[in-house]
């Protein structure tokens, strides 16, 4: 059952420190596990309801950008690096070769014009805490001039290798997670997009 507003935990940063407010765990009693055949005690349940507080660090511009309809990437601009000019999506804070800080760039237009499917899979299964509709159409997206291949999901259309896709963004009610970014096949209209998403 979803938590009520009063049961949720919220966190701000004040003076450089996390300030949690609200409820972060609801204790629930352990329950014994009996073997119904023998009537003997076999074990115990250990219910856990916890909230992790996690820093995005230098990747925060990517996750904040999604809610603004922007796809942020990073690029190595170190003149002395063998792989200078490489664009990374997933955004990497540091160049994996020279370990100098990458430059954060906006690749939204590049994605809108060059994204295509490298591979895909459709699964009807998910794990606990999944928020995506089932079946999930996983896609891996290539972009022209980008040295890596982003994992995402296809929200509208059927996946095929090399099919052109365009990004959509959860701009109306962002969750600030990777699920704020999805893709649709080229030619999809605004009215077909999932609730809250825009091009």
């Amino acid at each position: 059952m979803p938590k009520t507003e009063n049961e949720k935990g919220f966190v701000d940063i004040i003076n450089g420190r996390y300030k949690p407010e609200g409820v972060f765990h609801i204790p629930e009693a352990n329950q014994p596990i009996f073997n119904k055949d023998t009537g003997k005690l076999a074990g115990i349940t250990n219910p856990r309801d916890m909230t992790y507080i996690h820093s995005y660090g230098g990747e925060a511009p990517f996750f904040e950008g999604l809610g603004k309809g922007k796809l942020m990437a990073s690029r190595c601009d170190n003149e002395k690096c063998d792989t200078k000019g490489s664009i990374y999506q997933p955004l990497r804070i540091y160049c994996p070769d020279c370990l100098r800080k990458n430059t954060i760039i906006d690749m939204t237009n590049l994605a809108k014009t060059t994204a295509k499917i490298h591979s895909y899979i459709i699964t009807h299964r998910s794990g606990a805490f999944n928020s995506l509709p089932i079946p999930i159409k996983f896609i891996n997206v290539e972009f022209e001039g980008v040295v890596t291949i982003l994992m995402s999901v296809l929200a509208v259309g059927e996946p095929e290798i090399d099919k052109k896709v365009v990004p959509i963004f959860n701009t109306k009610a962002p969750t600030y997670t990777i699920t704020d970014l999805r893709f649709v096949v080229e030619g999809t209209s605004e009215s077909e997009l999932p609730e809250g998403f825009t091009f």
């Binding site: 997933p90 591979s119 899979i121 699964t123 794990g127 606990a128 805490f129 999944n130 994992m151 990777i178």
Partner: peptide, 30 residues
């Protein structure tokens, strides 16, 4: 399934379905 999916990248992959098979099977598909 969720706990196994936490062996993928927690920010870039796990929220996508919380199902590791999905991250793996794209390789199989290709």
């Amino acid at each position: 399934n969720h706990l196994i999916s936490a062996a993928a990248d927690k920010d870039w992959e796990t929220p996508l379905g919380h199902i590791y098979t999905g991250y793996y099977a794209v390789m199989a598909q290709r």
